[in-house]
Structures are given as C-alpha cells and as structure tokens.
C-alpha cells in the first residue's frame, strides 16, 4: 500500500533532530509538525517572519496578525520571535535553518526541483521556494511518486520550469525514501506493501536500490 499524506509526513518527521531549526512548506510538509518525535526539540521557522511557530489557535483565539506562510492562522510557542521578511530570508540564506521540507511537482535524479509553474496553465509564483532551495543546507521533498495519470514525477530531467538546481538531498514519496546521489535516486526504504519492482516501474529517473534497503517504519 502506498503511503497517505499523513504517513509521508510521519516518515519525514523521523528526520528531525534535536536542536534543528526547520522550515516546513505548504501542503504535506505542514503536517510534519504534527509528528515531531517526543524529546526532539525543534524550532519551526515561518518565512513570513516567525521563529517558534505553534499549532493552530483554539476556536475564537485566531488573530489576523498571526499567520504562517500559507496564510493560515497559527500561534506562537514560548521563546518565539518575529522579524521582517529580509531578516527571515537572511537567516535562510546564511545557512541558519537546518532543514527545509517542501513539496514538488517534479524532482530530477540530480536533485533539480520544479514546483512553481506550469507554463500557460498555473501562474501562482514561486513565493519563497526559490530562496529556500537555493540556500538551505538540507532539503527534503515530500511528494507523490506519480501524477494522477500514473506518470513518474521522479525524472531524469525536469520538464517544468526549475525552482532550483541540484539542491534536493532526499525524497520521501508515497512509495519510499530516496537519497539523491551522483548515481541518481538511491532507494533506501520502501513503503509497507510496496515492491521494489513497483518502485522501478514508477521511477523514470536513474534508480539504484541500496544493498540494505528496508521496509519503512511508519
């Protein structure tokens, strides 16, 4: 069985380490905040100007002046700090943010990522994605392995306009976990019930299977 979105988020949460400053993108990445392992102390950065993002507010406590980068109402946790957008991207650019998790429409086997534009169709803009992927030390992509037509989104080369070049370090899809290596996607884990043959069939980019590949624990 391929993973659902919550399970992808839960698997990515296993990558969080104590002391990390983490930026979570919109969509599946946002869900990662719900699965931070017990005893792991991380600070969530929201690129619109907050360190120390907390959960959604209780009904009635929502504040129009307190939103995340997805424009959702949020709260702060003790020790939080607000800042302007230049400082926010300054800390990203200066390598202070340890991990960035974001979604993608396509990832190439050299770590290129496309997630902001479908020419002639979707015109929404890149927001902070280009800044994040250009600067972040460690980028994990959360994505579906194939599009609704069943075509692979893990490609030899992105067909859509790029967001960043050679920047993705790891992909967690509904089928497995893949490190980006000089030899392409390296499958290190497969989702429970998913076969290596299925992963091979649905990965268009270069794929190698780790010798010690194992079933994902989610």
């Amino acid at each position: 069985m391929a993973l659902n979105k919550e399970q992808i988020a839960r698997r990515i949460a296993q990558e969080l380490q104590d002391g990390f400053y983490v930026n979570l993108g919109i969509g599946i990445p946002t869900l990662v905040a719900n699965y931070i392992p017990h005893g792991v102390d991380v600070v969530l950065q929201s690129e619109n100007g907050l360190l120390g993002m907390g959960p959604f507010p209780l009904e009635g406590d929502e504040d129009a002046d307190l939103i995340n980068a997805g424009k959702q109402t949020i709260t702060t946790v003790p020790g939080s700090a607000f800042f302007d957008s230049a400082m926010s991207f300054g800390m990203i650019r200066a390598g202070k943010v340890d991990l960035t998790v974001l979604g993608a429409m396509e990832v190439a086997d050299n770590g290129d990522i496309a997630n902001w534009k479908i020419p002639g169709k979707m015109v929404k803009g890149m927001g902070g994605a280009m800044d994040l992927v250009a600067a972040a030390k460690n980028i994990i992509v959360a994505m579906q392995h194939t599009n609704p037509k069943g075509e692979s989104k893990l490609l030899p080369k992105c067909s859509l306009p790029l967001t960043g070049v050679g920047c993705v370090k790891k992909v967690v899809s509904d089928l497995g976990v893949f490190d980006i290596t000089p030899d392409g996607f390296r499958c290190i884990e497969y989702a429970p019930g998913v076969t290596i043959d299925e992963i091979k069939a649905k990965t268009a980019g270069r794929l190698i299977i780790a010798d010690d590949v194992k079933e994902m624990i989610v």
């Binding site: 959960p55 959604f56 507010p57 209780l58 009904e59 009635g60 406590d61 929502e62 129009a64 002046d65 939103i67 997805g70 424009k71 959702q72 109402t73 949020i74």
Partner: peptide, 12 residues
Amino acid sequence: EKRIEQRTVRKR
C-alpha cells in the same frame, strides 16, 4: 477589517 485568508483553528 483585517480579513483572515485561511482561518484554521483547533476545536475546543
């Protein structure tokens, strides 16, 4: 007016 774009809350 301070309109909120995405009102996300937890139930009490």
